[in-house]
Amino acid sequence: MTEILSPLPGTFYHKAAPDKPPFKTQGDAVAVGDVIGLIEVMKSFIDVQADAAGKFVRYVANNEAAVMAGDPLAEVA
């Protein structure tokens, strides 16, 4: 099991837009560099990219959660 950590403090989003599906759901294949979420910081949106490959397990941080740099966001197995 690998945790994907937040690169920055900010607000975490599972989706590219409120009416879009989440970037990943359980069982999805994850490749290194895949976007799994967004961090809103200083009115900018930064892609959160997977730094490990495998199968997507779950989001650890809730959609729209306030996160700190280094907080776990999602799990990949």
Partner: peptide, 14 residues
């Protein structure tokens, strides 16, 4: 601005 121009202007709070 609190941004890193060498990293595509990545925000830099802290």
């Amino acid at each position: 601005n609190a941004e890193n121009p060498a990293l595509n202007f990545r925000p830099s709070p802290g």
